[in-house]
């Protein structure tokens, strides 16, 4: 009894929709958490209350995003089993481990201390609360690491072999799974993009306040942090994103070809493609040679 292809299509749509919805909130928390930690560090060092105010203000927005990330994140974890049960059986031995370690090492840390971040201001010393904020930020980023190790293994399945007795993939080299080059490239690329996203978010809201002439002290200081943090992140994204592309051409040539809608081997120098049109998607690979020299 083969599975109805409609079920597969709908499951793909569902995964795409839930993953994208989840990832509206998560990149913001990656960047915002570090900026909150930086602002609170300045507060602890200088003792100026405007920095505390800034930390609390961005903390509120972080909190909403974190809660929404949790709400959508449980769906992400559970739907592997719900919609992709054969996949779960087939790769669970390898793929389940980083997901479980993410919970053990990262998400527990972040989720436990996020409550203390909001409710612990009067119950902890300044330094104590600062440590809590940094732990939230570190937890959020370690969480991204383990999720991308799991994702990296889907992209480039290293350190595992098929076991015919159990009809599934099994781990042979856990270190190889962790230090998978695709996973590492994706991790640094994703978190730096998350930092940039958070920085632009803070910049945009601060700019709006400045334009309206409201909360000027808070907005100016937030801008300083977001602009410097964002500049560093933007430069990292350029370099690390480029690296991520190179890693893909090494391990996932077909994926790169599909992204560029290259269905035939072209004579060198091959033309670049700016944007695959629906006709190209339907494998009538058209030409868009304007970018040829770039590639």
């Amino acid at each position: 009894m083969p599975i109805d292809s409609l079920v597969v299509d709908l499951s793909r749509w569902q995964f795409a929709a839930t993953a994208m919805y989840h990832f509206i909130f998560v990149p913001l928390t990656l960047g915002l958490s570090f900026m909150m930690a930086i602002m609170e560090s300045v507060y602890v060092m200088t003792g100026r209350s405007v920095w505390r105010k800034a930390t609390l203000f961005w903390g509120t927005l972080f909190g909403i995003n974190f809660a929404m990330g949790v709400a959508t994140g449980i769906v992400m974890e559970f739907q592997f089993g719900m919609n992709w049960s054969y996949y779960s059986h087939y790769v669970g031995d390898v793929f389940g481990a980083p997901l479980a370690i993410e919970g053990l090492m990262a998400f527990f840390l972040e989720a436990t201390f996020v409550g203390l971040f909001f409710f612990g201001w009067d119950r902890l010393s300044k330094i104590g609360h600062l440590v809590v904020t940094w732990l939230v930020a570190i937890g959020a980023n370690f969480s991204a690491l383990w999720i991308l190790i799991a994702n990296g293994w889907m992209q480039n399945p290293v350190g595992a072999r098929f076991n015919p007795d159990t009809m599934r993939m099994e781990i042979t080299d856990f270190i190889a799974v962790i230090f998978n080059p695709v996973a590492q490239a994706k991790f640094v690329h994703t978190v730096s993009a998350g930092y940039l996203c958070g920085a632009v978010f803070v910049l945009a809201i601060s700019a709006l306040y400045l334009a309206k002439g409201k909360h000027i002290e808070l907005a100016k200081r937030s801008m300083v942090v977001a602009a410097s943090f964002g500049l560093a992140s933007a430069l990292s994204v350029v370099v690390l994103g480029d690296e991520s592309g190179y890693v893909a051409t090494e391990h996932q040539k077909m994926k790169v070809a599909a992204i560029e809608a290259s269905f035939h081997t072209e004579p060198a120098p091959a033309p670049g493609r700016c944007w695959p049109s629906p006709a190209q998607m339907a494998r009538r690979s058209g030409n868009c040679r304007s970018r040829g020299w770039v590639v």
Binding site: F78, S88, V91, G96, F107, A111, V114, G115
Partner: peptide
């Protein structure tokens, strides 16, 4: 504390996935 408490469920799900994949599936 509720957010931390809920991670027990997320971790439980992850542990079933990692330790008993057929059960999870």
């Amino acid at each position: 504390t509720w957010e931390g408490n809920q991670v027990w469920l997320i971790l439980g799900g992850g542990a079933i996935f990692a330790a008993f994949p057929p059960l999870y599936a």
